[in-house]
Structures are given as C-alpha cells and as structure tokens.
Nucleic acid binder design. Structure first.
Lengths: 334, 334
DNA sequence: CTAGATTCCGTGAACGTTCACAGCGTGTTG
DNA sequence: CAACACGCTGTGAACGTTCACGGAATCTAG
C-alpha cells in the first residue's frame, strides 16, 4: 500500500536537470540560473518531493535533532510548568532551524545509559537538560564527549561546565522574604526544595541573606516539591515553632500543601500565618486564599536556553549563562 | 575536535569477521556462531561502536521515530496531566523498540503544514495525536496519506478513522451525577468543556443520561477547561439559578474556578453547594475543601494508545479503539 | 557414501543525499 | 586574440548500513 516517495532523481528528471542542481536549489546555493530554479521548483511542487533526512544527515554526518532530557524520576513532569513552556519554545525555535526535538528520560542509570548511547552515537546534535540534579553522571559524560549541552536551570556543582538559563532564584527568595518582613511578620519559617537542586539551595540562600542568623535551622524544613511534602514539612514546623507567623515555601505546590496543614491546625491564612510561594504556577490561583508568590519569566528562560544551545551547535567555543529577574506577585495569602 | 566515530567496518576488522556478520549480531539474526558472536560483542565494547541510525533507516526505508503532535494552541499543555503521563509512557515504550519520540506542535495552519510535510516526508513511522479538536484537517491528511496514527482521547467526528484510547467519559460523568443525586442534591448544574472535544461533549451526555429532561439548558454552562472559564461559568449559573445545590464541572481546574466564585458569593462548599470535578489532577488536592472527582486511568490510557500505534506500525490493518473505566474519588467537596 | 538440508559467513548492490571536481560557455581584460 | 575569471551544470564518489544471494562446511537420512 505504501507508495514510493519521489527522490531527488525524480524531480531532476521532471525538471530535465541533473540532481546536482536540484540539490543546489534545495540548499540555497547561489550558483543556479533563474530558469533552472523555477523549473526545479515547479518539479518539486508537482512531484510532492520532500528531502530524505536520513540520506542528507548520513552524508552530512549530522543528526538533525536535539534531545531534551527529562531528569525527574517520577511523575513530576506535570507539576512543573517549566517543562511545558520549555518544550513548546524548544519545538518552535528548533523547528525554525529544521531541527527536531526528541524526548528522552534519564530517571535511572539504565535510562542514562540509553541517553548517552544515543547522543554519543551521533543521533543528536545537542542536548537540552531539564531539572538535572547535582551529581548526575550524565553531565560529565556529555562534557567529556564534547556534546553541545545546555541546561534549563543551573546544574548544581557544574555551573561552569553546563551553560544554563535560569531565573534569579536567590534574588527571588530575597524578594519574598523582604516582603513578608515588610508586612510585619517576625517569625518566618521556610520549606525548601531538595538540596541538590538550584531551586532548593538558592532559594534558601536568599531567605538566609535577608534573615541573617534569624534563619535558624529550627525554622527550616525540607520538602521535595510535592504537595504532601509541603503538608508534612508544615506539620513539623508547627510542632517545633508553634508561634510562627509566616512561612515561605520554595514552590507553589508545597505552599498549597502547607496551607492545607495550617487550616487543619486551625490557623487562619494570612491572619495567623502568612504564606508565600514560588513559581506562580497554576495552583497559585486554585488555593484559598489565592497565593502570593514569585513569578519566574519562564518564556524568556526557555528562549535563552534554546538560544544558548543553538550557539553551541553553531560552533561557539563558549557561551555565557544567563539569569533573569523574578517579580513578586501579591495576592491574598500574604 | 570531533573524533570520528567507529563504523561497522571497524568492529568487523577488530573482530576479524566480515561486516555482514556484525550486522547479523546487531540485528539478532540466529545464523551466527557463538565464537563469532562473542568476538564481535567484544569488538563492539572495545571500539565503543554504536549503530548509525541514519544509515540504517536509509536502507530500511524507515524513520525510526514517532511524532507526537500537540494540538492545543496555547499554554494548556501543563494544565493537562494527560500530557505528561502520555509523554513518559510513549518515551518508555517506544524506546524499547528503538523508536524515538519527536515532538511537534499543530497550533495553527502553518504548524500543521510543517507536521504534514514532516510525516509525508517519511520522517516518522507513526503519529500520536494529543487532544486534537474536531475538524482538524490534519487527521484527514494523515488518513489519506496512509500514515499510522492514533489519538490519546477520541477525535470527535473521526472516531472511525483515527483509533484511540480514552476513558469512559460518558460513564464517568454518569457516575458523578448519580453520586451527587445519591447525596440528596436536587438542582444540579454543569460546567462543560469545549463542545468540540470528547470531554466536552460526552461528559455532558453522561450528565444528561442521568438527569433526563431535568438537565435543562438553564443548568448548563460552557467553559474552555481553564480556571477563569470555570469562575465565569459559575457566576452565570448562580445568576440564572440562585438556588442550585450542586455543580459538576467537567475538569478539576474549572471546578477550582467554580469554587472560587461560590466562595466569593458566600456559598459554602459542600454545605450549600456540592462541587464535583473530573480528571483527579493535581489541583484536586490543592483546593479547599478537597475536590471530589472522577479519576481517569491515565497510565493505562497512555499504555493502550502507544500499543495501538505500535500495532499499526507493525502492519495491522485495523485496530480496535479502547475505552477504560473511570472511578469516583470521594473527598470533601461533595 | 551420497543427496539434501542446515548453519554459518562474505560480497556486492542499494538506499537518497551532498560535495568536490571538472567541464563548458560567455564575458572581461591585457 | 589569448588568457582568465565567472556563472552554471553534470558526474562520480562517499556516507554507513541492510539484505539477498551464493558458497562452504557440517550434519542427517536413506
């Protein structure tokens, strides 16, 4: 049933010109006469020809695609709005360059092995890392294999080997902490993200920047970005510091969990306890009261990430990582 | 800098065997002696050889990849947990077959043209449609081009041309409606999804199945899956039917919006108005009170979708669409 | 012991491009 | 007019596989 697709020979024959010239118009070479060009263009339209990428990439020794590596092991993908924005932007920008985006997962070692085999096998011209954790062996392998790679969000400990675009995590956390103080809060606790992620580490740093030694470990609990981890962390905090009057969660989802625990404990938000989030994701407008949070310029981050990768693929020796400013979004929870 | 990668000739030379035999062990042919096999396997390990897909696909006349087409025009991607589960499952299952997943967008006509050129150009062995709307010209083009294609969720009006896996939308809606009735609710309104999507149409049908002529148009409002559309629809309903005592929203996100409006109007949930959602997505546990909703077996749907596509790619003439049962998840909102 | 099957292996052709090279007119310059 | 540059075109080789074919060796059965 599958009908044979026309090749470059077919359009050459249809146009009465050799395949070399056809290839030239296909690739925008300037040495081709107007007559030949129009004849070939008509022949292409008539035959419905479209270039065979396998053949092209084979001879060109390229792959024509970029792989996006998702590092989150579980089902976090959809909790993180970062992902979808980045995916869409990447598809768009890469498409403009006739590069396609292939997705891979690097959850466990077997996955990572597969990714590595894939890119070292020359099946990808570049790699786009998403939420890669500290110590992931993949990044060193990529680096030593001289594979163009960038990350959306910094890779902790490898900031100098993998260029990245990210928001100003630390500055954003400072913004929120200062805001809480400006609203008269005195005993401010924090629920951090995992301490092997930039969001986990740097948002805590920003918090500590502002609070100084008042940011005692008593007031800090760690979560893993999930709703339930926010609930549990909040419970621990309440037990240890019953008189806290504000909590800054390093993600909206955890903030939502924290609010849940607070309500169950009979604390009113924001009257008794103010709650601040981070991300300005979709849950920030599903909570009650609406969540005051820090917005990341996701679109810009995605754009910059892809741009860095393209520069690298184009042969740039070195590209400069970029960090973009956040903004405070005041709603009802603080 | 880029070092030349070893080819099949290199491993053949290293093993002292011809490339034909190497190809055989690569592709699991049975006619190869144990001695040759081990020699070649060692040579492969030594040289770090990995097959060049371009060359392989070129001669095999295949592409070695499947394209997933995202049809949502805007930023809905991340509001829909369907997506991430399906993406992950697809990557996994396709990877087992050495197929890679490339992502494309079909938001506007230009996008669709690009997708079509891509698949008709033989760059994909199959197509995986996600949330394609009724009347999308892409599906007919795919069908007439004899491109293996399946959809995650039915494509309205094209159920017979594009096989799909989906949950029992209509049955799920019946479950929720019956539950609300069983809790003593008498004036039940509904907020539907867009009427060119299966979730929009069939969830309303299920609602009407149970309520019969009590499901008057007065009690039905349409949303577009977003939070704000839920808020607005709820406001219209309250104005028209102030004494309603329950509302069934066709998605959790819209239910969250509805709850917001209800609270603003001074109605208590569930005391005054019970609220039911659909999806059991992450927002269902961020709302207050926690949302009673209908769970879709997302994992199974994704698995089935991919399985259908693989069957089609393997040459099956016809595959049977599957619909999977939903379950009622009772929480606090109803 | 011979005929035929079975197992294993090597070779050449093909897949559809690109690219370097060579060739051919025509125009320009000395 | 010779020499040369320039614009354009065709050709052959190469990219790295797979696959069909055929030959050699071994095994099985009559």
């Amino acid at each position: 049933m599958r009908v044979k697709r026309p090749t470059i020979h077919d359009v050459a024959a249809a146009a009465g010109i050799s395949r070399g010239t056809v290839s030239r118009v296909l690739n925008g070479d300037r040495y081709v006469s107007p007559a030949a060009r129009t004849a070939i263009e008509r022949a292409i339209a008539e035959t419905g020809y479209v270039v065979n990428r396998n053949a092209r990439n084979l001879v060109r020794q390229r792959s024509g695609s970029v792989v996006m590596v998702l590092s989150e092991p579980h089902e976090k993908l959809f909790e993180d709005p970062n992902y979808s924005t980045t995916i869409r932007t990447a598809i768009r920008r890469l498409g403009e360059r006739d590069l396609s985006l292939v997705m891979m997962i690097a959850g466990d070692d077997r996955d990572r092995e597969q990714v590595l085999r894939y890119v070292r096998g020359g099946h990808a011209d570049g790699v786009l890392l998403l939420s890669t954790h500290a110590g992931d062996p993949l990044v060193d392998s990529l680096h030593s294999g001289h594979i163009p790679a960038v990350s959306c969000g910094a890779v902790i400990g490898r900031e100098s080997v993998i260029p990245f675009a990210a928001c100003d995590e630390r500055g954003g956390a400072r913004q929120m902490t200062e805001y809480l103080i400006s609203r008269g809060r005195r005993k401010i606790a924090m629920i951090t993200g995992p301490m092997d992620t930039p969001g986990g580490i740097q948002r805590l740093e920003g918090f500590a920047d502002v609070l100084g030694r008042k940011a005692s470990t008593k007031l800090v609990e760690h979560g893993d970005w999930t709703h339930t981890s926010g609930e549990l962390a909040m419970a621990r905090l309440l037990e240890r510091v019953p008189d806290l009057d504000a909590v800054f969660a390093a993600s909206d989802v955890m903030a939502s969990g924290a609010m849940h625990t607070l309500r169950a404990a009979g604390r009113r938000v924001p009257d008794d306890v103010a709650v601040g989030g981070f991300d300005d994701s979709s849950v920030a407008i599903s909570t009650h009261p609406l969540l005051t949070t820090i917005r990341q310029p996701l679109g810009d981050i995605a754009e910059e990430t892809v741009r860095l990768l393209l520069d690298l693929i184009d042969g740039a020796e070195h590209v400069e990582s970029v960090t973009l400013p956040t903004t405070l979004v005041v709603r009802d929870s603080a």
